[in-house]
Every structure is written in C-alpha cells, then in structure tokens.
C-alpha cells in the first residue's frame, strides 16, 4: 500500500491541505489502520497541547487593513452613491434641476460681473480723485512760491530805488559845491 508522507498527515492534522488532497487522504485513512493510528496519536497530542494555554493569550495582533481594502471601501461607496443618484433621478427631475441650475448660475454670474464692474468704477474714481488732489496741492505750492518771489523782488526793488535816490542826492550836492 502506498502510504501518504508524514508531512501530508501533519498538514491534514492542522487543516493545511487542499480539499482534493484531504479527500484522498481520508479515503486512504479509511482503509489503513497504521496511518489511522499515527494520526490518532497526534490528535491526542494536539488535545493535550491545548490543555496548557498561557493566560490572556492575545491570539493575533490587531492587523490593520491594507490600503487595498481602503481602496475597495472607496470603490464600493462611490458605486453605491452613483447608483443611488442614477436610479432616484427621473428625466423630468433632471430637466427641472438643469433649468434651476442654469438660472442660478446665470444670476450668480451677473452678480459677479456687477460686483466686478462696481469695484473697477470705484477704483477709477479713487484714482481720479488722487490725481486731482495732487494737482491742487502742486498748484498751491507753486502759487505760494511765486508770491514769495514777488515779495522778495518788490523789497529788493525798493532798496535799489532808495540807493539810487541817495546817489542822486550825493551827486547834486557835489555839483553845487563846485
């Protein structure tokens, strides 16, 4: 008889064989007392090993879900969302929704344009006002300077006139003396 290997039997004991192989092994075990005895002895050991468990045995650490699972969750959610929207929207609803959206969009665009236009106008007026103020300021400064020049010139002219008069008087007295 062709017996299965010990490796096969141990895999069967710990349920790490394919279904096909498991079926083959079980068929063999039905007709082979030696293999049955072997497996039975191991099963007893397995039961005995189970008797001495360490307390509060944390079976396996919490295994985080891989990014693949995240992606799967995202795809499922998106599919559900799409399907929900697709099957709950009739043609009439879609037309109404489109019209409403168009109106809303148009109003929104108009408002935005108006606001933009108003902002430009205000900016232009402010700029003009600044230029005018600058011009007036420069005019006032120029006028002030001119007045100063006029006053100074007038004073100098008077001084020169007086000096000429005095010179004339001195010249006349000299000629009389001669």
């Amino acid at each position: 008889m062709n017996h299965p290997s010990k490796e096969d039997l141990i895999s069967l004991l710990y349920k790490e064989v394919s279904r096909e192989r498991e079926s083959e092994l079980n068929t063999h075990l039905q007709s082979c007392a030696a293999c049955r005895t072997q497996l039975s002895a191991w099963q007893n050991v397995q039961v005995d090993l189970g008797r001495s468990r360490v307390p509060a045995h944390a079976k396996r650490p919490l295994v985080p879900v891989s990014s693949f699972k995240w992606a799967a969750v995202a795809v499922i959610m998106l599919t559900i969302g799409f399907a929900w929207g697709r099957f709950n929207l009739t043609q009439g609803d879609a037309g109404k929704l489109r019209a409403q959206l168009q109106t809303e969009l148009r109003d929104d665009l108009n408002l935005q344009l108006k606001a933009s236009h108003e902002a430009d106008r205000k900016e232009f007026i402010a700029m003009l006002r600044d230029v005018e103020e600058q011009r007036l300021s420069e005019y006032r400064q120029l006028r002030k300077d001119l007045e100063t020049v006029a006053v100074v010139a007038d004073e100098k002219l008077s001084t020169t006139q007086r000096a000429l008069n005095q010179l004339n008087l001195v010249a006349q007295s000299d000629s009389n003396n001669r």
């Binding site: 010990k6 490796e7 039997l9 141990i10 710990y14 002895a41 191991w42 007893n44 050991v45 090993l49």
Partner: peptide, 15 residues
C-alpha cells in the same frame, strides 16, 4: 512539516 511530525511523535512517546 517533517519537524512538526517528528515533534508530535516524540511528544506522543513522552506523554
């Protein structure tokens, strides 16, 4: 697997 099989046989003998 062969080590496991051997270990189980030895344990059976010991027990």
């Amino acid at each position: 697997k062969s080590r496991m099989a051997e270990a189980m046989s030895q344990l059976a003998d010991l027990l």
